[in-house]
Write a protein that binds this DNA or RNA. Structure first.
Lengths: 232, 232
DNA sequence: TCAAAAGTGTTCCCTGTACACCCATGG
DNA sequence: CCATGGGTGTACAGGGAACACTTTTGA
């Protein structure tokens, strides 16, 4: 595996907050650098003649194996607090790379994106600099490098604002799901409990849900309907 | 006057949509390049060791003479459609600059900001590359270079969404104003008419307006109260 | 027949909207 | 005393929140 070379634009990067949902919990993909106990958001660089959005899609496909990903830009971070060349130097040295004047040691302005993906369909894949990439519960994140924690919070803030407006939540679920699962996604994102009856009514009143056959789980209670999102 | 040198980060710029309000109209500061009939948003570059937000504030102060400006980042644009080196080449040549391999001819990713300022307190000041900077009505903008029209639309979109949420509108008005003026600002931004009675009630119910003495305009009707925003 | 969860119904309250009415002011 | 615009009152509709009731399922 090889490092990015200077076919990339210097001083510009992107970082992505990749949300998934499983076991009633909101989860985020976090990578760990080799032997470093240093945790970070998956990010990358933009090629000289590559559209910014394409660069992010490329990176996300490599990390998740997914092709069509719901992606939204939320903020660009350009403070000097985020300039910590020692950390990147240690990461590069650990890999045995020549580090003097390496372009990755420069000061970076990073564009933050968040993605919503279906937890089950992902195969997390590490990149050249990291030895692991895994899901972490939002409320049990490890300490993240630089300002990445701030990125997570700002991404979630944006997601909360746009949750109703753009009906994003279905990106986190499989094709068919129960009303309870949909409600759990909302609750995980919003961080609060919602009234079951009112939630059901509100979702149905939007007219974007397709009702399917009931799902018999074997539980000793009424079987719930399955729903999918209409694709018009 | 001198051009920016390479103490600036290459390939990164910012552009600002500066909103003002006068004569019931929403206005935007647009600059024109020397003898070019080319119109653009005021923008600039980031110094190597300068925080992004500071760079934008610096540029806006130079252009407007104002110090404390309400400023909000709204989106970062990184498509390849915005790479039009011929235009920048002509602008530089017109100024008699050496243009071969000039860093300003490279491909740029630009961070979009919008600002809200008090129309009356501004002294628009051109920069080295432009010979004029003036207010244009939002609904009578000239044709703008590259994707700057798209920036304007996206800025206004963000402003509309955050208008109520953050109570931004007072940045566009003088210290004291009438309820009618405030309503006109809202109507100019939202692009729709609002009910006078309900608008008044809603604003007052927010508890952020301080009522002052009445303003006698000499008009043959009831004199309106003046208001200011509470600063807590 | 019982508990648990799903589905639906009812009531209350708040907010936004539309419209009506009175008040101050200068001609 | 009239036209104009400012300030306030009222009545109605729609949506959210809280809660109750019924239905389905397996044990």
């Amino acid at each position: 595996m090889s490092l990015p070379t200077n076919e990339y634009i210097p001083h510009i990067s992107y970082d992505s907050v990749i949300f998934g949902f499983s076991g009633e919990k909101l989860k985020i993909l976090i990578l760990e650098y080799h032997n470093m106990k240093t945790y970070a958001l998956p990010g990358g660089f933009v090629k000289m003649d590559e559209p910014l959005d394409d660069a992010v899609k490329r990176g996300l496909s490599e990390r998740t194996g997914l092709d069509k990903i719901y992606l939204e830009q939320f903020h660009t971070f350009g403070s000097m607090q985020r300039f910590k060349p020692e950390i990147m130097r240690r990461i590069l040295e650990e890999q045995g790379h020549q580090v003097e004047d390496h372009w990755m040691l420069g000061r970076f302005i990073t564009v933050g994106y968040y993605a919503l993906i279906n937890y089950e369909s992902v195969i997390p894949t590490p990149d050249a600099l990291s030895d692991s990439i895994d899901w972490y519960d939002y409320d049990q994140l490890p300490e993240l490098m630089m300002d990445h924690r701030e990125l997570v919070e700002k991404a979630l803030e944006h997601l909360r604002i746009h949750l109703d407006h753009k009906l994003l939540s279905f990106n986190l679920l499989p094709d068919k799901f129960t009303m309870k699962e949909l409600q759990q996604v909302y609750e995980a994102i919003l961080g609060e409990e919602l009234n079951r009856a009112n939630f059901q009514r509100k979702m149905l009143s939007l007219g974007i849900l397709q009702r399917h056959d009931k799902l018999y789980t074997g539980g000793s209670h009424k079987a719930p309907y399955l729903y999918s999102f209409k694709k018009n």
